[in-house]
Amino acid sequence: MRSEFAYASPSSLGEALEILKDFGERTCVIAGGTDLMIAIREGELRAELLVDISRIPELRLIREEGNQICIGPLVTHGELASSGLIKKGASVLGRAANSVGSPQIRNMGTIGGNIINASPAADTIPALVVLEAQVTLKKREGERSLPITDFYLGPYKTIIGAQELLTKITFAKLDDTWKSSFIKLARRKALAISRINIAVLAKMDEMRAKEVRVSIGSSTPTPCRMEKAEAVLRGAVPSAAVIEEASRIVAEEMVARSGVRPSTEYKRPAVQGLVKKALQEAFNIGL
């Protein structure tokens, strides 16, 4: 049976925060609804009041603030994928957003929803992790900002309070010394949840990789960076051997973090192979 609930549709951020303040634990926030509508249809919504924030225009902006890019939580995957600002200053996020679902899902599903839903398979999260994004959580009494890697407690679990709303996502705009890649492996090429996704950022200084950031999704309990592999790549001149080594370390790190599971037999070599491809693409090294 379909879930039953009351419905509120605030038209300003202030109004939304008031509602969350008053009803807190009894609420659930809905934006694009691509996850929640299914739960509602299945009768799985655990809330009495659905707070629809989709009519709050100020949460729907992509802005440049100094050298920062600032994204509202209602920005859809489709909007991210087609934004000139994202393409130029954070293309890895645009590509990640473009790999989600289908055009219909990308046009409804929001980045805020992708972050809050906290699925280990979320496609924008590894991109946001390598961008070292900060998320801002606001409640009526005030706000706090924290790195996205500190936001997650586990699969589908975050630290957001019942009275808080995610109001923006910010990260430093990248210049063109940064190269990037995003690779997704799913059961098919469209309308499929990632089994493995990988985001790579590399800041190049002539031939040398000055800084490299790697994050893999769908493979670790919480989003994280692959620091051991990054250390191997930092300062190195990218070569087949270095890439091979880094890929191997990522696969090991993945297993160390998630433990050996039935899927590990496939995922360990596949992660290694995909990281190799992602690094080759970022460093623009042929096969």
């Binding site: 059961r187 098919r188 090429k189 469209a190 309308l191 499929a192 949840i193």
Partner: peptide, 11 residues
Amino acid sequence: FADYKVASMLD
């Protein structure tokens, strides 16, 4: 159809 995967046009 979310879990029983049929090839998509891109495949």
